[in-house]
Design a protein around this nucleic acid. Structure first.
Lengths: 343, 343
DNA sequence: GTGAAAGCGCTAACAG
DNA sequence: CTGTTAGCGCTTTCAC
């Protein structure tokens, strides 16, 4: 009678155990808690692992230990380059570990986010990274009770589920608005792509910044349905001018839009910064090289990803993760596009 | 005596089975091959699943079936926006299914790629997507023998492991070079960021295109160490002019670089396209809006991702995946940056 | 410090 | 069409 084995042929922990003359559990311990295994046994196990080319099966590990090596990352969009920069930071650090990053796309939907959180939690992830602070009540409850580290990224908020790293979007936009006012602009518009929680908060910062001088005018605020892009910026600028031909500056929620505005100004022969001021948001590399160079709010996107993952790895290694809540701030980078000569 | 259960408390397939008055295997079948279960049993199982909020445990499924629901994607870089566009396409289609996408970064290293392929294969992925055609001999052997669908993306090549979708990079660059020649430029440079297999092939296409008229000059070919960016384009343009002050056009391996060149021309007052012609590669949205608009080679990045994943899903569902090897081609989009008035 | 036994939750194999 | 049995490869529990 043939046995009914279903194995893949890959070496298992039992193969290693036999080769090392120990039991399976000793191999397991040699791998996970080497200090609890005698030096001698450990050496033999390691040799056997190398000889056989053994790699643990993550599915079996997850099933037996009720804990997977997956770090879930929830982002609202895989299309938006802002989140991509953050993802880079996440990957950079994750690659130094054995954890696997798994991206999931909430598509700006709280319901979808909730579904994905459940899905991840069901797998007992090693940790979870979620974007922002606008989760549904149920999602919040799930995350608060989650048996793993949770990091909220990209924003700051009053009641973190666990850890948090980001910056204040409204403060950043406020600073940009003040800068435009200080530079002498008066009829300042706001261009945004698809509206989400963060762009809404930025708008409120922008508004606050202008209202201090009674300069806010809702007619100069434009949001679009589409995602952010250079062409959208050009189109929105055109729309802004049709709404207020006297508009003299704009805060763009995104650097793409700012580039589009600049190109459209060039096309129309509108002089930047003298006749029109442009301020972007995020400070992508192109801003510094554009002609004229474009003022922008530098945001620590990549660093957010790096620090989120670093905190997680520290926690998972039972080390001190440092501050659990980190406001990484922002920097207004003043450039030629708002450097108006005094009149 | 307490039982020694280690369960998470989540409902298991047994809970569903009991609630539905069937055996566990029937639940399993109702989920995976509903047509092999009686309508009656299926209905009761589905009801029980809904009542209990049951979700299968992917780790247990993977362990028992030797097949995971993970689709691995190997890309050379998570920093390069070209691959990001392809990833978008992959995600868009993957999200219509229950498979999970897992990105891994080979960092342009064949050795790393080989390690990652082994790692993935060890998990018995549902399918694997790999970038390009330059795998190590060992990697190639592993992939040819892999027990799952494999798609090579982004390039075309003679001996696909399984499926393939991309376009010819050398042909695309050749067409761009010919276009510049036809537009009347004679001292044409080539700017590239970090050199990899694809940019090397593009250079050879560029070279072939110019050599037809004896116009190729290696002194006008620049590669950098850094990844592609707008500032790099500006810097390389400066370097190109110092090498050949008479240079009259450039093919940029990347649209970022082309934008940088344009800005630097604006800064120096060099007239585009009259005094200098610029052609980009990939045709990102900004090209159409730049002033002047920039000629570029449109590449089907997103569609490559979409089709790769679509073929995989078809194969996994035992449907006809259509052509296994697909050359999606490219399109030269002629714009103002190369539209020289005849002299 | 080490091991035997008993699961983790699911599905392949074989019967009926 | 349905069920029983025996694993998948690993780790927990408890004992030595």
């Amino acid at each position: 009678m043939a046995r009914k084995r279903r194995t893949t042929g890959n070496p298992t922990i039992m193969d290693v155990a036999r080769a090392a003359g120990v039991s399976a559990i000793t191999v397991s311990r040699a791998l996970r808690t080497p200090e609890r295994v005698s030096t001698d046994a450990r050496a033999r196990v390691n040799a056997a692992i190398r000889n056989l080319g053994y790699t643990p099966d993550p599915a079996a590990q997850a099933l037996a230990s009720q804990r997977s090596d997956i770090i879930g990352v929830l982002v609202p969009s895989v299309t938006n380059s802002v989140f991509l920069d953050t993802m880079r930071g996440v990957y950079e650090v994750a690659e130094t570990s054995d954890f696997r990053v798994q991206i999931a796309n909430t598509r700006y939907s709280q319901a979808e986010e909730e579904r994905l959180v459940r899905l991840f939690l069901h797998q007992r992830p090693a940790a979870l990274i979620v974007t922002g602070i606008d989760q549904s009540a149920t999602t919040a409850k799930l995350l608060r009770a989650a048996p793993c580290p949770i990091v909220q990224i990209t924003e700051m908020g009053p009641a973190p589920f666990d850890m948090m790293v980001g910056f204040s979007h409204s403060e950043a936009a406020r600073a940009a608005a003040r800068h435009l006012v200080d530079a002498g602009y008066r009829r300042i518009g706001f261009l945004g792509a698809r509206r989400d929680a963060r762009s809404t908060r930025r708008l409120s910062g922008f508004r606050a910044g202008l209202e201090a001088d009674g300069l806010f005018n809702a007619a100069r605020v434009l949001f679009a349905e589409q995602p952010s892009s250079v062409p959208l910026g050009a189109a929105q600028f055109t729309e802004l001018l049709s709404r207020d031909p006297q508009a003299d500056a704009v805060l763009c929620n995104n650097d793409d839009l700012a580039l589009g505005v600049l190109f459209e100004c060039q096309r129309r022969g509108i002089e930047v910064p003298q006749a029109f001021g442009i301020c972007g948001f995020n400070d992508i590399a192109a801003m510094a090289v554009a002609h004229p160079s474009i003022t922008s709010v530098r945001t620590p996107r990549r660093e957010i990803g790096r620090q989120a993952m670093t905190m997680i790895l520290a926690r998972l290694a039972d080390e001190d993760p440092g501050p659990m809540v980190r406001d990484l701030g922002f920097t207004l980078i003043q450039r030629d596009s708002t450097r108006r000569r005094p009149t």
